[in-house]
């Protein structure tokens, strides 16, 4: 089964020149993909399509054989809550919630995620605690409001939130750009380790090609996207 399957996808922002024009792109389930693209290459647009925030004007975009463009906005929101983990570049957390509550946020919005955890014979809270500890937060930090944590810790909480409840797909939008090299490497290792446990497909966006050794595949967005290419 394909995690992502794109054919003849066209997307443009309100009648302008197409931002995205992807003839074909597939990602297998469980694969980890490094997606590299300079800014302005339509990276954020592609991610918003994959996350179901926007839909393409034409072409097909299937996630795990679900045709995204045919779903309503509400259905896409539900699908995202249940199946997609998302990590931002930074400012991932609600500053007024504790690290634990932030990690639990995705489960709060998704019954399916809570069910999956329950099937493992555990509670969301216990699993979140365990995961945060594996990511290197001590029990005091877990209870702290998110804004008191360091950037590195915040990114790890974001990873826990994204992966809690075993989503099928993880989208990480330059999650390591605010981290130094040492933290970056451990972060990616932990992220991939946790993902593989649930057979989660990973799309990792970065501009740093040096990270490609960690991933199954390396994709250049410029090669994928024909928009703006010479006629």
């Amino acid at each position: 089964m394909h995690a992502v399957s794109i054919e003849k996808l066209l997307f443009s922002w309100s009648g302008q020149q197409p931002t995205l024009d992807i003839p074909a792109w597939q990602i297998k389930q469980g694969e980890t993909v490094l997606l590299r693209g300079p800014s302005g290459s339509g990276k954020s647009t592609l991610l918003s399509l994959l996350a179901g925030i926007n839909t393409p004007q034409s072409g097909s975009l299937n996630l795990f054989e679900t045709a995204f463009p045919s779903l309503s906005g509400r259905q896409r929101d539900r699908y995202r809550a249940d199946n997609i983990g998302y990590i931002f570049q930074q400012f991932n957390l609600l500053p007024y919630l504790s690290a634990l509550d932030n990690a639990l946020l995705a489960c709060q919005f998704s019954k399916k995620r809570r069910q999956r955890i329950a099937e493992q014979g555990s509670s969301a809270e216990a699993t979140a605690n365990e995961m945060l500890q594996r990511l290197g937060l001590n029990s005091a930090q877990i209870e702290q409001p998110a804004h008191t944590l360091s950037v590195g810790q915040q990114q790890r909480v974001a990873a826990a939130r994204a992966l809690l409840g075993a989503p099928k797909l993880l989208i990480a939008d330059e999650p390591t750009s605010a981290l130094d090299a040492e933290h970056r490497d451990t972060f990616i290792q932990l992220l991939l380790e946790l993902s593989s446990q649930n057979n989660t497909t990973v799309i990792f966006v970065t501009h740093d090609a040096a990270l490609s050794s960690y991933f199954d595949k390396h994709v250049e967005l410029n090669e994928l996207n024909q928009a703006g290419a010479q006629p």
């Binding site: 509400r74 995202r80 998302y86 991932n92 609600l94 500053p95 946020l105 919005f109």
Partner: peptide, 16 residues
Amino acid sequence: RREMAVLRAVGAGPGT
């Protein structure tokens, strides 16, 4: 706006 984006990312719809 960041707060809203985070909520959107974890599956909150604009209605939420």
